[in-house]
Nucleic acid binder design. Structure first.
Ligand SMILES: [Mn+2]
Ligand SMILES: [Mn+2]
Ligand SMILES: [Zn+2]
Ligand SMILES: [Zn+2]
Lengths: 161, 161
DNA sequence: CAGATAATGACACTCCTTTTCATTTACACC
DNA sequence: GGTGTAAATGAAAAGGAGTGTCATTATCTG
């Protein structure tokens, strides 16, 4: 899925959108009383620019390019704070462990490429009528839902041709 | 969510349906060349009768009531075989680790009670038109989806009144 | 009943994540 | 610009979930 030696995608997708995210995440950290360190800036920059969900170790490896002294513990602590502020979210992998990705904006769900790991959000799903019928049949008070789609992204489809 | 001292639910929900499941799972194991041991019968009985997804440790604790010498490793090995035969499936918890539950029949999805952990399957979801529109907009070839609903089951709603 | 082999439990190990603690760093205040 | 204080860091150790190894035990076949 994710290739250790292929970090091009990270900065290839670094657009104004990602730069804005980067700045707003730094502000968000600062407004919550957290300090801005070199390490933290580096990790935030990587996460805000990534088109893939990243595991803690992947983020650790990417982070050490900027901050060679970086420790894995700091990665986990940074992820914890960004998640607490609602800036990133965990993505559950079929295998078991977590990856991390910028959080959804409002009511969005994930679309994941099973070949390269690319993650995109989509919106516009309206499950309300369906959920009402499930509620009626089951007696449950349905309060939340969790929807993820899996498939092949445009690039991976092209690559396969 | 799940109370260590409250195993009533397990046998309270033991109905003919669960008894049938129990017998068919044993047959399934036998037909695949696996042997029927006392330990295995006990674990299968618990899983087939459970209305909740169980963690490995929960299953371990329940199993030791019947087989005090039971080891946690045996629990994992039994879960592995039952999953391999398609009789149970993993349920991903928001927290991270897995729980295990009888497998879905055909195209079904899960409905989980956030208060007591009760798990029920439902069917009848038709996301095809929605998934087509997502595919069009994203360029993804959407091949699979993962849907879980969360809410309060009838019992927990009554209990709250 | 006896032999072949699957299953078990104890132990040790790996992997991911969290805790602890001494040191370093950022930021508020003067 | 210094200075003090509390937050952040990295190293090391601990924790929890899950897997591998191996000698012993139990199941099934004939
Ligand atoms: Mn939705
Ligand atoms: Mn479906
Ligand atoms: Zn892809
Ligand atoms: Zn409930």
């Amino acid at each position: 899925m994710y290739n250790e030696n292929d970090f091009h995608y990270l900065y290839a997708t670094m657009n104004t959108n990602a730069t804005d995210l980067y700045q707003s995440w730094l502000s968000s950290l600062q407004n919550s009383g957290y300090r801005l360190t070199e390490t933290r800036r580096a990790l935030v920059e990587i996460l805000a620019a990534s088109s893939h969900a990243l595991s803690a170790v992947e983020l650790y490896d990417l982070g050490r390019r900027e901050c060679p002294r970086l420790g894995l513990v700091t990665v986990y602590r940074t992820l914890e704070k960004l998640e607490e502020l609602g800036l990133i979210q965990r993505v559950h992998q079929p295998g078991g462990c977590h990856m991390y990705l910028r959080a959804a904006q409002g009511h969005q769900h994930l679309l994941l490429c099973t070949a390269c790991g690319r993650a995109e959000y989509f919106d516009g799903d309206d499950l309300s009528t369906f959920m009402n019928s499930v509620a009626d049949q089951s007696g449950f008070d349905v309060r939340d839902h969790w929807l993820q789609l899996f498939g092949l992204c445009q690039q991976c489809r092209d690559h396969d041709l």
